[in-house]
Design a protein around this nucleic acid. Structure first.
Lengths: 252, 252
DNA sequence: CGTTGTCGTCCGATATATCGGACGGTTGTC
DNA sequence: GACAACCGTCCGATATATCGGACGACAACG
């Protein structure tokens, strides 16, 4: 996940901390010290020492079953981040309102490396909702949001950014690159993206850009609704998204 | 903040990471590298290297003004924590509902070391609301929650836990220890705590315990309302808190 | 009940990360 | 335009953190 930029072995101590936390994040479940050893490749004694140090600082906690997971400190830090990020802070109430109004799941997504990432998620109350957890990363071509963000980007840049493998859907189906590029352009002109049954065959996703400055979309706002939503409803949803995005754009 | 338990100088690299993040958290504002040097006491080159490493991993981000703050990764980690903590996960919707129903600020607090800490905060919509940010730590004797949690704890344990200095209110007023102990006992028998004008002379705070097992309160749920709330309203609020706490108790 | 496997802690030699200081770039001042 | 102050990067000697392995505790098992 991280470039071997400078050198692989400069500041190993720090790397250890980072990779341990990344592993915990990837597994999304508390892990035993053993699993952490295997996952990080660090020797046993180092892992234990690290766990102790980080636990002492509240970065990690040991559950009653002996498994390790993130601790309170991470909660604080994460909230610090969310509070200081202008866009996230302002977006939350707007999204909450959108979700409540239409009773659908709203998400704010940003590009992180070569993947799309869910940064905020507000669930609608309906029982069979479609939603994904904050922090989930998805290949760009799988998402409506991806089509929005890539708008206006030259063909070469897109091909350079998106890994080959990401053009294959979970179903195994291959996304045609030229069709994808055409869709992006269409999306840009229309101002919003609409995808149906891409990742999930029953889902339909609408995304609009949130602009920073006047040039690039910094983030996208999207509804994910059942595929059965009729035309009128879709139009209403898109319109609401546009309005919301307009109030959030031009942020700082 | 951290005990000098084992030895002050074992694993300095890790300590650096920890103290840098703690400083960022304490300042609650993005910091320049210079400020970080001063705050952590680390030499210039070390701070820069650390910043680079952590930035590469997404733990830190550099704003347009060159200031450093937490990055996306922290957001993910923090949410992982909140998602995996049964109590927090279940509490959020309950609190949201409470806040909406009474239009007051609800908080879930837990003990962290010798301080009370706000773990979740749901604001009511009223304009002059009383609320504090998640992560804020408050001396135990200043809070209604503190009176709840200490219920049943022997005198010695309480005096051992609470630092001398924490019995002095921000106003400078000294809290009488015996009266405080009596209040704790009263609180325990009554099942809820009620404080008026302790930290803030206009605030009135109500707290009830959330039990784990059947013995200790693991957390408290509280309303913080204006002091002018009348008796009937207070009773209604406390009753709602009790109900909510009952559904959250006995969690796992 | 001896044996074997797993777990967490501890420790010293050695591989290695750290920090002082030098360097080149930029900005502000007289 | 010369000078000073500051910024971020880079690098090598050396102070120091790391990891292999030993240790005791505990549990499982034949």
């Amino acid at each position: 996940m991280r470039q071997p930029t400078t050198s692989t072995s400069r500041a190993r101590g720090v790397d250890r901390v980072i990779s341990l936390c990344e592993q915990l994040h990837l597994h999304r479940e508390p892990m035993t010290p053993k699993e952490l050893m295997a996952a990080t490749g660090a020797p046993r004694s180092s892992v234990y020492e690290l766990i102790n140090l980080l636990s002492e600082a509240g970065w990690l906690e040991t559950g009653s079953d002996g498994r390790i997971f993130f601790g309170r400190a991470m909660h604080y830090f994460g909230l610090d981040y969310a509070d200081h990020n202008d866009l996230l802070r302002r977006a939350r109430p707007v999204m909450r309102q959108l979700s409540a109004r239409f009773d659908e799941t709203t998400q704010l997504c940003m590009l992180d490396g070569d993947k799309y990432t869910v940064m905020l998620n507000e669930n609608g109350a309906r029982p069979f909702r479609i939603s994904s957890e904050v922090g989930v990363k998805v290949p760009i071509p799988w998402t409506a949001s991806g089509r929005v963000l890539l708008g206006g980007m030259p063909r070469e840049a897109i091909l350079g950014l998106v890994p080959e493998a990401d053009f294959v859907l979970p179903s195994g189906e291959q996304i045609d690159i030229d069709a994808f590029l055409a869709e992006i352009e269409h999306t840009r002109q229309r101002g919003y993206a609409l995808t149906e049954g891409l990742v999930d065959s029953f889902a339909c996703c609408m995304a609009v850009p949130i602009h920073e400055g006047d040039t690039v979309a910094r983030a996208t706002l999207c509804f994910t609704v059942g595929r059965n939503a009729d035309q009128a409803r879709r139009e209403a949803l898109v319109e609401a998204l546009r309005e919301a995005a307009a109030t959030l754009s031009h942020g700082d």
